[in-house]
Every structure is written in C-alpha cells, then in structure tokens.
Design a protein around this nucleic acid. Structure first.
Length: 603
RNA sequence: GGAGCCGUAGUUCAGUUGGUUAGAACGCCAGCCUGUCACGUUGGAGGUCGCGGGUUCGAGUCCCGUCGGCUCCGCCA
C-alpha cells in the first residue's frame, strides 16, 4: 500500500544538508539509489537532482519506519521525515558533499514503487553503461544519471548566459515561424502537408535566415533568437535532425563588429566553466586554415601542421608525386614526433584512413637509427633525407606524406592529423582554443553538377575587393572566376568544432539578383521563391549581417562530451528514430485522407 | 547511397580448431548481519546466443541475407 503525499512538503533537497544543519528536523523526498540492510538498521541513499543524502533507519528508534524500509527497493520514491545528525569521524563519507551528516529517520513514506530497472542507472565501480540503444528506449531512466542531469543544467545555464549577454547589448528576442516555406537550396527540408491547401506544404526552417534579414529591413536593428532548426540530412556524432542555434542579426554592422559579438558571447558562456577565452580570438583565413591544417575547422590544441613539399617533386622523383604536382595538385606531409617506431600494421591503418578521403596512398619515412621509407626504392636515400630535412623531422620522428589533388591532400592529412593527435594523446583536455576563420570562398565548385554553388548561403555578400571580379564573372560569363571570389563570411571554431558561422549579407537588390544568377537560379525561379525578399530589398534595406552559433556543439565542449546526445534531453538515434516514443510512426488512413495524401511505399 | 565495428542471462562481457551440460561479474529473489556508503555473507532463480536461411553427423562459433545500435565517407546553402 502506497502512502499519500498529502500536505507534506520538502524542507531540503538531497544535496544541501551539512554539519550546519545538525539538529534540524527535515523532510526529504527522492529516489532510493541504494539500500544497505544490516538487520537491526538500514541505510538508504536518497537521491534527487541535487545530490545524495544517507538516511539511517534504526529498529530501536523507529520500528515502523524500519519495517517500511525493509520493503523499499531501488528506485522507489520515498519521503523521509527525520533529524540531521553528524556522523562520527570514522563514518564520514568524503566522496559526497553531504557525507559529513546523515538523516536519522523517524518516518518513511513510500510514495511510489518501481519495478526492477531494465538496466542499472549508474553501475558502481564500472565505466560500462548499458547499451545506448537500451538507454535511449528508457530515456527517462538514463536521464536520472547525474552526468546527464548536469549536462542539461549546464545547457540551461548556457542559454541563460546568452540571453543575458544579448539583452545587455540591446538585442531583442524575436520568435519566427516553425511552419515556414521550402527553399530547395541547401539541406533537405522537413515538409508539413497543409490540410487547407491540399497538395501544398510548409517546410520546417533550416534556419530563420531570411526572416532575420527581414527583421533588419523592418528596422528592428538587433535581433536574436534561441532558434530550433531542422535539416533532413544524415546524422553524425555532433549532428541531429533538429538542433538549436543562437541566431543573431544586426544592422549597420561590419565583420569586426560581428566578431566582437561572437567573441563576447563565447567568452561569457565559457566563464560558466571558469575558462577565460581571449578577448580577441586568433584569426586564420580560410586559405591559411586549409593550407596549415587541411580543414576549415582546425583544432588548435596541438601542432603537427601540414607542410608543403611539392617543390621537391617539380622535376623528378616518384611518378605519382610528380604527376600530382604537374596536374595542379600537391605533395604534403606531417611530422609525427617520436614515432619512428610505427609498425607496418599501424601505418597500414593510417593509410586506410587516408583512403577514405580519396588518397591514393600514404608514403612514410621513419627516422630510426637507420632511416627507412616506403619511398626508398623509388627516390633513393638522398632524396628521402632531403624530404625529412625540408619538413624539419628529427631523429626518432615519422613523416607521413600524401600526394594528389589539393582537396584530397588537405582532407586526408587533416583527418590523419586529428586521428594521430587522439591516439598519441597530444590533446590537452583542459584547453580551449577558439579561432575565427575568415574570407571563406563565396562559391564552391560541385564536380557532380559541374556548377558553382553558394558556399555559405546565397545571401552572403562578397568581399569589397572582389565585387568587381564578381560582376565580371557573372555578367561577362567568366565563370571560372567565381572560384576566386571571397565572401564576407566567417566561422568561429573551438577545439575543432564549428561552433558558429555567419556573414555580412547582401542588402542591395542588384547584387542579390547577380548572386542568384551566379548560382544558376533563373530570374523567374528567384522571384517565385524569393520574390518577397527581393522586393523587401527595394524598400530601404540597411546593411546588415549576423551569425548563428550551435548550442549543442558549444555545450558538448563545455560539458566535455563528444556526443551531441549527451547534451539533448530527447535525442534521436543515428538513423533518425526516437526509440522511446517510437517515431517516426505510421498515421491513420483518415489523417492522410484529410491531407490529400496517398502513400506509395513501393520501392 | 557506401564502409567499419558491435548484437550471448535483466545489464556489462567471456566463450579455444565447429563438439556433447553456454560461463563470470553486477543486478534480481530469499535468509543472516550494530556503521555501511561498490556493505558483507549463505543459498536460489534466470538463456529463442538479434532474426531468417544455408553448410555440417553436429553451429553461439563458418557462409548468405536481414533488422537494430554506434562511428565514418557522401550529404549537412
């Protein structure tokens, strides 16, 4: 028989009692985390969001309560009335904040029972959690874990800090619709069928991009929003189909002004974990980031930069290298300190990694007592030594070399650099290295469609220096010039995660139309999709720009986790299902009919 | 769309070259226990080896398919 809560109220949480409370009468409520039964008396570890308090129930002091404690099992919900007593020195538990006291119970109320759990919430003395599949199915149990609760609390604090900061600078929080409109560029849309207009669809926003620009045109001056965004693309460890961004836009802004806001936001947020990010973040141009780190989101917590050795293969050498250089590609290398002892097997694994990024192979030099190299036969000892000295490798080091197209060399060596830093423990887990990546290219060449596409989004302004080039490229049809145009676009990267990205926008209709034309959008299509926006630009659109920061990625770094599911209450699996509520799911035929939808499930 | 790893008791895992009765720890149930806090201790219950097919005298183990989870490539303006 369960007890009723009645009028009983908690006096304290399970995390706050200490020696200062000794002698007080208290009422605690929570879950039984563990029970230790000694026959004549029983200990309960009572847990709530704030912590754990040990309850003692003695047969001598409170026979009824003791009898009740006998019935209690793990995860029962109980209320305890009792008094706070100090523990003797030998009984103090230094592992928990409340370990200097305990509550001597005189009454126990069982508020609810619990079946035996499908898995142990926190398995004592083991790092092994139950499988993620099982934990996602019983998310409400997994969320009882202190670690996850802490993460969600931290996330709430991050968002509160952001609001404080944005408010203090005069940004106003404006909500934008979730039922929006499909814009076929960019990511795949989630669609919502309209009942009233059969055959027509809303789309969930990939971001509130256009609406925040409209806010600027409306004269709202400074906008922000903690905005939910939806993109129907495949998932990753740091990507979910729905996620949250700090979305920001401001009028009359240049890049420098936006950088200051980005820096300010992250600085105030990182103070939550007592980390002082620099007042000004270091900067790298996109070009430099790719050259030195092989990626536009470099992890600056360690070195091991990419080095260009193409020069050594201009005229002669190993055929795959010379032909790569001759056809506009590169030969680049990284030096792995102290790893001249890499085994054949390890080098093979690393080669496999580079092949995922399209590399033809991975050449290596090992500067052990004797120099060995996969290139020895092809190049001879002198040339091998020349490479080693060019990249400043020292005795004991390994040199890893990839040749090929610039893109392949960059991405494969970039991935290699990260992988090796992980396995060689080169990363200081307590360091936080932000960097602003600037001067992104305006367009990217898509090799499948043989067309140029907007690299950021089609509202991004070109750099002033490149505007003339832009007109030439589009109006005179010199399309290959598009690849050279740089945008007023930027990212904020922290520890190798792209945490924010933004741009100065186009605010003149003529340039916006030119941009649509550049990405192959006909005038008619542009007007059909963005007519309202082009029109808005005609009515006194101010110069403006902004950014969006990923809340989850930021929280991942702050919470020290590498998985986005650890900073979301109800995440989906990597195939996009929610295992708890079992979505997506079938719907009633009548619902479909109402929407004018007939299914075709043939494959 | 593609690749890799994984799936054995409620949970986490082990399981030899294909061999007869599939193990351990934790959890669970019952008893004992005056200071535990990963309590201890005695005993007990608990298995469709993800699912389907195949090879074989014999499959947890080998093969094919399939489902699910995780990670990566593509994708993510």
């Amino acid at each position: 028989m369960l007890d009723s809560l009645g009028n009983l109220e908690r006096t304290h949480t399970c995390g706050e009692l200490d020696v200062k409370n000794v002698g007080e009468r208290v009422v605690l409520m929570g879950w039984v985390a563990r029970k230790r039964d000694f026959g004549i008396f029983t200990f309960l570890d009572l847990r709530d969001r704030e912590g754990i308090t040990q309850i003692v129930i003695s047969e001598d002091v409170a026979p009824q309560a003791h009898a009740k404690a006998k019935q209690v099992r793990n995860e029962y919900v109980v209320a305890v009335k009792g008094s706070v007593v100090a523990r003797s020195d030998s009984a103090v538990n230094p592992k928990i904040p409340t370990g200097r006291i305990e509550v001597l119970a005189d009454e126990i109320l069982i508020l609810n029972e619990s079946k035996t759990l499908p898995f142990e919430i926190e398995k004592a003395g083991s790092q092994n959690l139950a499988s993620e599949e099982l934990r996602l199915k019983y998310r409400y149990l997994d969320l009882r874990r202190q670690r996850l609760q802490k993460n969600l609390i931290m996330r709430a604090q991050v968002i509160r800090k952001i609001r404080e900061y944005m408010d203090s600078l005069g940004f106003i929080e404006i909500e934008t619709p979730i039922l929006l409109k499909s814009t076929p560029e960019g990511a795949r849309d989630f669609l919502v069928p309209s009942r009233v207009y059969k055959g027509k669809f809303y789309a969930l926003p990939q971001s509130p991009q256009i609406l925040k620009q409209i806010c600027m045109i409306a004269g709202l001056d400074r906008y922000y929003q903690i905005a939910r965004c939806f993109r129907d693309e495949d998932l990753r460890a740091d990507r979910q189909p729905e996620f949250t961004q700090l979305d920001v836009e401001m009028s009359f802004a240049n890049q420098e002004m936006i950088y200051r806001i980005i820096e300010g936001v992250f600085r105030s947020v990182f103070k939550l974990i007592d980390v002082d990010l620099p007042e000004q973040f270091p900067r790298l141009t996109y070009k430099e980031a790719i050259e030195r780190f092989g990626t536009d989101k470099p992890d600056l917590r360690f070195g091991m930069e990419l080095q260009d050795i193409s020069d050594l293969f201009k005229n002669d050498g190993f055929a795959p290298f010379t032909s790569a250089v001759a056809s506009g590609g590169q030969v680049k290398a990284i030096v792995v300190k102290g790893r001249a002892d890499y085994s054949r097997k390890r080098l093979d694994e690393l080669q496999q990694l580079t092949k995922r990024y399209g590399a033809g192979g991975l050449a290596w030099i090992k500067l052990a007592d004797e120099t060995s190299s996969s290139l020895m036969k092809a190049l001879g000892e002198a040339k091998v030594e020349e490479i080693a000295s060019k990249v400043k490798a020292e005795k004991g080091d390994a040199v890893l070399i990839v040749a090929g197209k610039k893109k392949v060399v960059a991405s494969s060596l970039g991935a290699l650099r990260t992988e090796i830093a992980e396995t060689e423990n080169l990363i200081d887990r307590n360091s936080y290295k932000p960097v602003l990546i600037t001067e992104f290219p305006m367009f990217e060449y898509n090799e499948d469609t043989c067309e140029y596409e907007a690299a950021h989004h089609p509202f991004t302004a070109p750099m002033d220096e490149d505007v003339e080039l832009f007109y030439r490229a589009v109006e005179k049809g010199e399309r290959e010039l598009l690849g050279k145009i740089r945008a007023k676009a930027y990212d904020a990267v922290i520890n190798g995660y792209e945490c924010a990205g933004g741009s100065i926008r186009i605010h003149q209709r003529r340039l916006q139309e030119l941009n649509f034309k550049a990405i192959g959008l006909s005038n008619e299509t542009a007007i059909e999709r963005f007519g309202f926006f082009l029109e808005a630009l005609d009515y006194g659109a101010p110069p403006h720009g902004g950014f969006a920061a990923g809340i989850e990625r930021t929280c991942m770094i702050i919470c020290g986790t590498e998985n986005i599911r650890d900073v979301m209450a109800f995440p989906k699996t990597s195939s996009g299902q929610d295992l708890m509520i079992d979505s997506p799911s079938l719907v009633e035929e009548s619902q479909l009919k109402e929407l004018g939808i007939r299914l075709d499930t043939r494959e």
